[in-house]
Computed example of a mutant assay.
Amino acid sequence: FFMLEVDNAGNRFRKAGSQGYPQSRFGGGCPKLPIHAAFSQPGQILVEAVEMPDGAEFLCIARTLEGPQGAFSERPRRTALLLGCDIGFRDEIVYGAALPAGSPGKPGQGFATPVGPACRLCERAGCLARAEPPVTRPLGLDEMVTGLSAFDFQG
C-alpha cells in the first residue's frame, strides 16, 4: 500500500509506503490522479485504476478529509487522501468491486487512467492535463502546428 495526503493547492502533507509507486521528490503529482478529483466531490469515495507510463497499474482510493475550522467565517481545512496498491490485489479489497470487469494486471484493458509521476517527469504525449513541459524532452515549438497539450514536445 501507499498513501498520499494533499491540500487543495496540491501541497503534500504526508506520504508513506509507495512500494513500486513512483512519487516525485519535487513538484506536484499528476493532475489526473483521483486525489485531485476528490475536492470536487467532498466526502465521496472515488475508486479508480491508474496506469503508469511503464505499464504498472494501481488501484487508487481517494476521499476528502475535513480538518479544523478556526472561526465561523473561516473555511475548514480540507485535505484529500489517496490510498493505493498494486492492481493485482483488487479482488482482495472491497473497493476493487467498483472497477469495471477485466483482467487485472494486463496492460491495455482500457479501464485504467493513464497517469504519470509528475508533469515535469512524464513523457506522455498529448496529455490535456499537462501543466508543465517535461525536462527530458525539448519543446516542439512550431507555430503552424497545434497539438492537444499546451506543452507539445519532440519525440
Rank of each mutant, 00 (worst) to 15 (best):
E123D: 07
S73L: 15
D54F: 05
S103T: 04
V94W: 05
L59P: 00
A112M: 04
G17S: 00
A131W: 14
P68N: 15
F72Y: 12
P107Q: 10
I61G: 03
I61A: 01
E132G: 11
D7F: 04
L121H: 09
A16H: 05
P104K: 04
R14Y: 10
N11S: 12
Y95T: 15
A71V: 15
T136K: 08
T64V: 01
K15G: 13
Q44E: 15
F89N: 11
V47N: 01
D54L: 03
I87T: 01
F13M: 08
A98E: 09
R137H: 11
G10L: 01
G17C: 00
D86A: 11
E48W: 03
G84Q: 09
L82Y: 04
G88E: 09
R63M: 10
F26E: 06
K15P: 02
G147M: 10
P114C: 07
D7G: 07
Q19N: 12
F1L: 13
G28Y: 02
R12L: 08
P31I: 00
L33E: 14
C60Y: 00
G140Q: 14
R75E: 13
F58A: 04
R12Y: 01
P76D: 13
G126M: 12
D91P: 09
S73A: 13
T79M: 04
G55I: 05
I35A: 01
L82N: 04
F13H: 15
A118Y: 01
G20H: 10
G116L: 07
F151D: 09
A131G: 13
V6A: 00
F89W: 12
Q19D: 15
F151R: 11
Q44D: 14
V6P: 01
T136W: 11
L33A: 02
T113F: 13
F58V: 05
F39N: 03
K106E: 15
G10N: 05
T64R: 09
D152R: 12
S40W: 04
M144V: 14
G84T: 01
G29F: 08
R124F: 14
T136C: 12
A125S: 14
G55A: 09
I45L: 08
Q109C: 14
T113Y: 09
I93C: 06
G28N: 05
Q154G: 09
Q23H: 10
A49T: 03
G140H: 13
A131N: 15
A9M: 10
F2H: 03
V94A: 08
A37L: 05
T136E: 15
I61V: 03
F2E: 05
C119A: 02
M52Q: 11
V47E: 00
E143W: 12
Q19T: 13
D7A: 06
M52H: 02
T146S: 14
T79N: 11
C119H: 02
F89Q: 11
P100N: 03
L128P: 11
L128Y: 08
K32L: 13
A129F: 06
A98F: 05
I93Q: 01
L148I: 13
L139I: 13
A98K: 13
K32A: 14
G10A: 07
L83I: 13
A71Y: 13
R120G: 00
